[in-house]
């Protein structure tokens, strides 16, 4: 036993360089962000203050946060509504042998994220593809770029595969005997879907929702390339504080709030996940 302990102790020591590394590059940066968020700059040096957080909850910034959450929610709902049927069809019997279809939906994810977002500029801009077509058939041009809808479109385009994949995985693993049993007992397709398939696939939907909502709510690339205005989303607000106006204290407070938002939504989704698993059993 003692020999084993010392062998384990020796092995545990191999993590020592990483522990030092993790302390410097993971823990210290977070401590620094919290420190900056709780101090303000005065003539006699930094002093403790809650004012950065108070400022973050002023109406101007509150509306930015609200807008981030709202656009991310709309994007998530569209991804569920558009992605569920895709996963459902691909998991159905007549398509399940066609593995390359899923592959086709995943290939664009391998393209650089910025290029995928950029491609929509060429489509939506004033001289872009859509407006050129509209003009050709004699319709007036539309303002499609630098509006909220363009941001939601960019989010849906980038994150849709994250919704399709987990739902597809859950649907494929589903016990086909259950569905056949329900049909034998007289349930029609609609009943089978609503009472059986949909509840059983909820874990996939919830993990898809997490994987879409998180990056959507914190993005600043999509909004700064496709959206208008400088205070578009919470991500743009942070970027501006650090790179343009150099107010690190306020930027840090907003970053701490975004971490809190992520922790809260992750726990809400995981509670929902547990509920649905319980619901699926009974």
């Amino acid at each position: 036993m003692a020999v084993m302990r010392s062998a384990e102790g020796q092995r545990a020591r191999m993590a020592a360089p990483y522990l030092l590394w993790a302390f410097i590059f993971i823990i210290v940066p977070i401590i620094l962000i919290i420190y900056y968020s709780l101090t303000i700059e005065t003539d006699s040096g930094p002093v403790f203050s809650w004012s950065n957080y108070a400022r973050a909850f002023e109406p101007t910034y509150l509306s930015v946060m609200w807008r981030s959450v709202l656009l991310a929610l709309i994007c998530t709902i569209i991804c569920v509504l558009a992605g569920y049927p895709v996963a459902y069809i691909m998991a159905s019997k007549e398509y399940s042998s066609k593995g390359f279809l899923l592959f086709l939906f995943l290939v664009p994810m391998w393209m650089n994220f910025l290029l995928r977002t950029y491609s929509w500029i060429a489509i939506l801009e004033n001289n872009g593809v859509i407006n050129t077509i509209l003009k050709a058939i004699g319709l007036p041009a539309l303002k499609l770029l630098y509006v909220d809808q363009a941001v939601v479109l960019g989010m849906v385009y980038n994150f849709l595969p994250f919704m399709i994949l987990p739902i597809y995985t859950v649907l494929r693993k589903m016990d086909q005997n259950l569905i056949e049993a329900a049909q034998d007992l007289g349930a029609d397709n609609r009943l089978v879907f609503i009472n059986l398939i949909l509840p059983l696939s909820m874990p996939g939907v919830i993990s898809g929702v997490t994987m879409v909502f998180m990056p959507a709510v914190t993005t600043f690339i999509i909004s700064s390339l496709l959206g208008g205005g400088q205070y578009m989303l919470i991500g743009n607000l942070i970027e501006r504080q650090f790179l343009k106006v150099s107010d690190w204290h306020f930027g840090s407070a907003v970053s701490v709030i975004i971490i809190a938002l992520v922790i809260v939504s992750t726990s809400v989704f995981s509670i929902a996940d547990k509920d649905s698993e319980g619901g699926a059993l009974f």
């Binding site: 410097i24 590059f25 993971i26 210290v28 940066p29 977070i30 620094l32 962000i33 900056y36 998180m214 990056p215 914190t218 600043f220 991500g235 942070i238 970027e239 650090f242 690190w248 930027g251 840090s252 970053s255 975004i258 971490i259 992520v262 992750t266």
Partner: peptide, 17 residues
């Protein structure tokens, strides 16, 4: 932490460091 943290927070916190 680096896996679940939003990229933007990882980015700005390293920049501060």
């Amino acid at each position: 932490i680096p896996v679940v943290n939003p990229d933007i927070v990882t980015g700005v916190s390293l920049m501060i460091l």
